[in-house]
Design a protein around this nucleic acid. Structure first.
Lengths: 341, 341
DNA sequence: AAATTTTTGATTTACGTACATCAGAATTCG
DNA sequence: CGAATTCTGATGTACGTAAATCAAAAATTT
């Protein structure tokens, strides 16, 4: 049988009350006594039964998700996953609140973060816009003792506890190799569509993509990056213009969202052209395009996994536990038309 | 606040004891009373607090993993993951036992399954060998009320509750497309190395691979399947012979385990030849080979995810709860040298 | 209607932990 | 040394559920 608080008391030769004082960092225990109890805890290998403790405490985990607004399928999916997590809140004792902020808007994000100061939260998850002031605001929350995890896009240099998202440099590199190998030895130009260079994930994908392209596929030339702000309308316009303006484009890498617009442009302007296309994020639109051969590969991050992982990590961090590392690694999914879920 | 058993009692106008009798299917409740209580449960939306219930019951989940012996890295990894799960057993109230059976040995598997009859188990997970007698043995366990999940390789037609593994037909198809596209328009022969056609997962991978090859890459010819029994020694011999015997081989698909032997053959016999290689299962050997360019892609199933998923599903099935479907889907991981974890 | 059986209620203990209260012991201070 | 302070113990309640016991009520049978 797993040892209990009673076993600690017996082993340390103290009363239950004292054990409790030590376990819950309550005052009124002499140093020598405290050490005696802590030694007993180690000796008998006591592990707190979190379920029982939570029951006794009536513990709930108030969590906040700060999500960007945006009319693209990926964000819709992310919202959906958070809402599903809210539906499960009775089971896992969470109380989830969603805070919406405009996309790519650092000041708004900072304001949202600072508004959380002083609230009794078990964790904050945010899709980070990469800016020094955001980093500072995150650090303030961390200093205040609130677990913070970044979601989808990281904020390196900050003191956030965890990042629940994919390795975006690796994603960009992978996209480059897929495009490069799929194109065989063909020579030509590649168009890159990004959302915004303000978010770290997009910058990193581009970085990874460019470096593999330069090193291993020199016959492919990268055209200047188009910024579509993850907006289908803008993406459509930019890609249409690019395709109309050049005949040497043989491939496209879309590293952000708003692929609905890209696909429309491919249908309208790219008609009849032999294009190899790799995009990010599996949505109903990209799935259909993958199936009908309009695009060749989709790189994806599982939003559901990201949200669930973020919640697990925030809860564990909140009560000082550790997590199963392998379980919290967010994988880059590569979808061809043959392995769609 | 979430409703409790007291709220049911009040709502139904009965005593706590009666509520308990209904909730735990204990005898001694008239039909009308039972229905009154059940109506109240629905009305107030009562959900049992499983943590509290388990605490009160002192519940543990005795689980059995039936795993094949075998000297290949994938199985070693699987064992390792189960052992890690055993190390976590205090936390999730499991009591895991591993039963070893010879690989590809249906009678042994049947014997192992039947030996579990009558034991008070919360679940059985097995790597299935696909045979009618195994199916029957699994069905017997299911009939006896024990949750059964298949791991890695499925057993369709049986009444197993769940399959914790990848879609192997899709995996084969994906391998075919990767090989086909990576080879550009080249014409030539492909060698296929399997473990055994006795296990469903290998048969399915081959089936998916063959169908995509036939339909979309007619310039590539498939050589007869080599069966290496997931054994590095045998794989080495078979591949060496194949490469020595033919100069028209331009690609290899290894759909089973034992890739250590394949890699040795590639190094010894395949020296200097331009081969495009796709293999299954990420191990230290295939990882290194991917990195140094010996192989081009690795398809993988995350053994850790499979084991954890199997445990979650068995526990949930054991107490009649449902699971988060998306969380239990085992994905086919595609690794290029750029997205290695 | 009495005797019997079946249902139901009331109450208690337990699971492992948290937390509060109060009395008594040990320590420190003056 | 006694008084004040700090520590420690003993005890009880709570969380939400399970499970057992015994008495009382209701239903059924005779």
């Amino acid at each position: 049988m797993r040892p209990t608080v009673y076993d600690i008391a017996a082993a340390a030769g103290v009363s239950l009350a004292t054990v409790d004082r030590v376990l819950n960092r309550r005052p009124g225990v002499r140093l020598v006594t405290r050490e005696k109890v802590e030694a007993a805890i180690r000796d008998i290998g006591y592990i707190r039964d979190v379920a029982a403790a939570n029951l006794a405490k009536g513990r709930v985990y108030p969590l906040v998700f700060i999500l960007p607004t945006g009319d693209n399928s990926f964000m819709h999916g992310l919202y959906g996953e958070v809402r599903q997590a809210m539906a499960r809140s009775t089971f896992d004792r969470t109380e989830i609140r969603i805070v919406e902020v405009p996309a790519f808007d650092a000041p708004a994000l900072v304001a949202a973060l600072d508004a959380l100061q002083g609230l009794d939260l078990a964790g904050v998850a945010l899709v980070a816009t990469d800016a020094p002031e955001v980093r500072a605001a995150v650090d303030r929350l961390v200093t205040a003792g609130i677990p913070v995890v970044t979601l989808v896009s990281d904020l390196t240099g900050s003191t956030r506890h965890h990042y629940a998202g994919v390795d975006n440099i690796g994603a960009g590199r992978t996209a480059a190799r897929l495009l490069g190998r799929f194109l065989g030895g063909c020579k030509g130009d590649l168009t890159i569509l990004a959302g915004s260079m303000l978010v770290r994930d997009h910058r990193e994908r581009l970085e990874g993509f460019s470096s593999v392209m330069a090193a291993e596929f020199p016959q492919l030339r990268l055209l200047p990056v188009l910024e579509g702000r993850d907006d289908p309308e803008i993406a459509n316009r930019l890609i249409s213009e690019a395709l109309s303006g050049s005949n040497s484009i043989i491939g496209i890498y879309s590293l952000g969202a708003g692929n609905r617009g890209l696909l429309k442009a491919l249908k309208d302007t790219g008609q009849g052209r032999e294009l190899t296309v790799v995009v990010h994020e599996l949505t109903e639109h990209t799935r259909a395009a993958l199936q009908d051969g309009t695009i060749d590969a989709v790189l994806n991050q599982d939003a559901g996994h990201e949200v669930r992982s973020a919640i697990r990590v925030m809860k564990a961090t909140a009560d000082g536990q550790d997590v199963i590392a392998g379980q919290e690694r967010i994988r880059l999914d590569i979808f061809l038309k043959d392995n769609l879920p």
